[in-house]
Simulated scan of single mutants.
Amino acid sequence: MDYKVLLLDDERILLQGLANKIALMDLPLRIIGEAGDGEEGLAYMELEMPDIVITDIRMPEMDGLAFIARVRSLRKPIQCVIISGYDDLEYARQASHLGVRHYLHKPVDHAELQSVLTDIVLQLRRGDSSHAR
């Protein structure tokens, strides 16, 4: 079973880079969409509910933290990963308050991303064994 991943970043080249890195990993992940901001991300959420969201913090229209807050309001068990070029403790604090455990800095290191996604896949598998999806 593949886990569905939604990517959000307003920099198209970074979205493509993330997608390429994920494609090279030997993990059961399928990218269901790439969005340039939170509003566009919500449109993807209506089409197909992801298991994992990887989002930038600073984006136009709706930033990553506001997007994650909306995702949390859906009451679905979606794993969220934040990527940011900013080393701001306030962002990290807000992300933690929203239940985000993974905060990666740009440029995203392949090995670090793979470690985070491997951890999330293992968490999802443990959750899958306790109830049907």
Rank of each mutant, 00 (worst) to 15 (best):
M1G: 14
D2A: 12
V5D: 03
V5E: 04
V5W: 05
L7Q: 05
L8K: 04
L8W: 04
L14P: 00
L15E: 06
L18H: 11
A19L: 01
I22H: 08
I22N: 05
A23T: 10
D26F: 08
L27M: 12
P28N: 08
P28C: 07
R30M: 07
R30D: 11
I31P: 05
I31S: 05
I31Q: 04
G33F: 01
G33W: 03
D37F: 07
E39K: 14
G41H: 00
G41P: 02
E46C: 08
E48Q: 15
E48A: 13
E48L: 13
E48F: 03
D51I: 08
D51W: 06
I52A: 03
V53D: 01
D56P: 03
M59W: 07
P60L: 04
E61H: 10
E61R: 14
M62G: 03
G64T: 07
L65T: 10
A66L: 08
R70A: 13
R70Q: 14
L74M: 15
R75H: 10
R75K: 14
K76Q: 13
V81P: 02
I82G: 02
S84I: 06
S84P: 02
G85K: 03
D87N: 13
D87S: 12
D87E: 12
D88V: 08
Y91M: 11
A92I: 14
A95Y: 09
S96P: 00
S96W: 10
L98I: 11
V100Y: 03
H102W: 13
H105N: 05
V108M: 03
S115E: 15
V116H: 04
L117H: 04
T118I: 01
I120Q: 06
I120K: 10
V121D: 08
L122A: 15
Q123V: 12
Q123C: 09
R126S: 15
G127W: 08
A132Q: 05
A132K: 07
